[in-house]
Simulated assay, not measured.
Amino acid sequence: MPKYSVSSMFFHEFRVDEIFKYAWDAGCTSVEFWLETPDFWLNGMDTDKLLRIMENFPGLLPVTMHAPVLDLNPCSINPFVVEASVRSTVLALKTAEKCKAEIITIHPGRRTAKRPAGKRDYKRFENYINIIKEESEHLKVKVCIENMEQKVNSLFYQPEMVHKLLNEEEWLYFTLDTAHALVSGEERLNKFIDLNFDRIANIHLSTVNNSGRHLPVSGDVRISNFLEKISGFGYDGHITLEIEDLNFPDKLSAEEKKEIISGEINYVSSFFR
């Protein structure tokens, strides 16, 4: 049975203790905690306090975590940006291990210029992933690389490139982002599953349409097909609802957010009963 989770950034405006309570109230069985969650990120990143809060919600453990990505780019041509990106990921690894997180998700970075990524950009990624490999070698937390949506300067938005990377880096796992894949169509999402299913440890679940991305999934035929497929394959990893609250016409209250997540979990879990 999968673990049903929500990204802490969906409740970004609340305190960390409130985020965990709302996730529990909504029926989650885990939380994906972003280090950039404002109450944590901007108030000293007190890991001991985070641990105390987590211990109050044993039904949400183990959590997953997401390394910092805002303003960062490990493949930047700016060495100072690269240094900050690497240091932030290493800090996230250590935080995840201390919090006994099961998984931490990282982004691959992108070419700085809005041009197709080339050999130098993939070399910068190789340097980055080698550092992360060394830093995580003696840790229990699983490191997952996330697929990006197709943009002119993106890295690792193709199922084949992710497959090649995972074959080369046997220690690495995969966070499949459905919205990023669906930007290029349902066929691409299916290709990600067919090539990489055995390495998927986490799924960032949301959908896309002409008006937005990272939208709720209930009733989306493409997501229904996806959930039926991975359920048939026996998927039992984390499923993380990664929904953008700015896609809603009005600001949502805590109660409205809990109701949305509860409804989404009921929908998703119906495919695994």
Rank of each mutant, 00 (worst) to 15 (best):
M1I: 13
P2H: 10
P2L: 05
V6P: 01
V6W: 02
S7G: 15
S8H: 06
S8F: 04
F10T: 03
K21E: 15
K21L: 13
W24G: 01
G27N: 06
G27D: 08
C28M: 03
F33L: 13
L42Q: 14
M45C: 15
D46N: 15
T47N: 12
K49I: 11
E55Y: 04
E55Q: 14
F57L: 01
G59T: 11
G59A: 13
L61Q: 15
P62A: 06
V63N: 00
M65H: 01
H66G: 13
D71Y: 14
L72D: 10
N73G: 11
C75N: 02
I77K: 09
V81G: 02
A84H: 04
V86A: 05
S88M: 04
T89Q: 02
L93Y: 04
E97N: 07
K98A: 10
K100T: 07
K100Y: 05
H107Q: 11
G109Q: 00
K114H: 05
A117K: 03
G118Q: 03
K119Q: 08
R120K: 05
D121F: 04
F125D: 04
N127F: 06
Y128C: 03
E134F: 04
L139D: 08
V143I: 13
S154Y: 13
Q158A: 15
P159N: 11
V162H: 01
K164Q: 14
E169H: 15
L172T: 09
Y173Q: 08
T175N: 15
T175I: 13
D177G: 06
A181V: 10
L182Q: 08
S184M: 12
G185H: 12
G185R: 12
R188Y: 10
L189M: 14
L189I: 12
H204L: 09
H204Y: 11
T207E: 09
T207R: 01
V208R: 05
V208S: 11
N209G: 10
G212A: 01
L215A: 05
S218Q: 09
G219E: 13
G219C: 11
I223P: 08
S224C: 04
L227Q: 05
L227W: 03
L241H: 03
E244L: 10
L246S: 15
F248P: 08
P249E: 11
K251L: 11
K251T: 13
E255V: 13
K257W: 05
K258S: 00
K258N: 05
G263L: 04
I265Y: 08
R273M: 09
